[in-house]
Measured scan of single mutants.
Amino acid sequence: AQASVVANQLIPINTRLTLVMMRSEVVTPVGIPAEDIPALVSMQVNRAVPLGTTLMPDMVKGYA
């Protein structure tokens, strides 16, 4: 199954992502693919992302 990017902590709005904030997990619905984690580093989220939330393309500025 495809692993997705999941928030490893609460990520406040406009925060630049770092590796420690993200983990890969097989979840439904599928979000951003886990292999994109390196590309997500330093991108900003456009909303607060609670712990355990799957990151979707529309949550990350410049990803989609």
Rank of each mutant, 00 (worst) to 15 (best):
I32T: 01
M22Y: 02
L19M: 13
P50T: 12
N46V: 11
L10C: 05
P57D: 06
R47A: 13
V41L: 11
T54F: 02
A39V: 11
R23T: 08
T53N: 13
R47G: 06
T18H: 06
T15L: 05
T18A: 10
A64D: 12
P38Q: 11
I32K: 00
N8T: 09
P50G: 09
Q44W: 10
P57L: 06
P29V: 08
P33T: 09
S24T: 14
S24A: 15
N14L: 10
G62A: 08
V6W: 02
D58N: 11
R23E: 04
P38A: 10
T18F: 03
T15G: 08
A48S: 13
V20S: 06
N8C: 04
T18W: 03
R47E: 08
P57T: 06
Y63P: 04
N8A: 15
N8Q: 11
V20N: 12
I11Y: 00
A1D: 09
S42F: 12
M43G: 04
E25M: 10
E25L: 11
P12D: 09
Q9Y: 13
T18P: 01
L51K: 13
L17I: 11
M22N: 01
D36L: 10
I32H: 00
E35K: 15
T28C: 05
A7Y: 01
G52S: 09
Y63V: 04
T54I: 10
S42M: 09
T15P: 00
D58Q: 12
V26Q: 07
L51Q: 14
V30K: 11
P12E: 15
V45Y: 00
K61T: 15
P29A: 04
L10G: 09
R47V: 14
T54C: 04
L40S: 00
V60H: 00
T15E: 11
I13D: 15
T54P: 08
S4P: 02
E25N: 15
V20K: 15
L10Y: 14
V20C: 05
A39E: 07
L17W: 02
V27H: 04
S4H: 01
V49A: 05
V26C: 05
A7N: 00
A3H: 08
V5H: 02
M21H: 07
G52V: 02
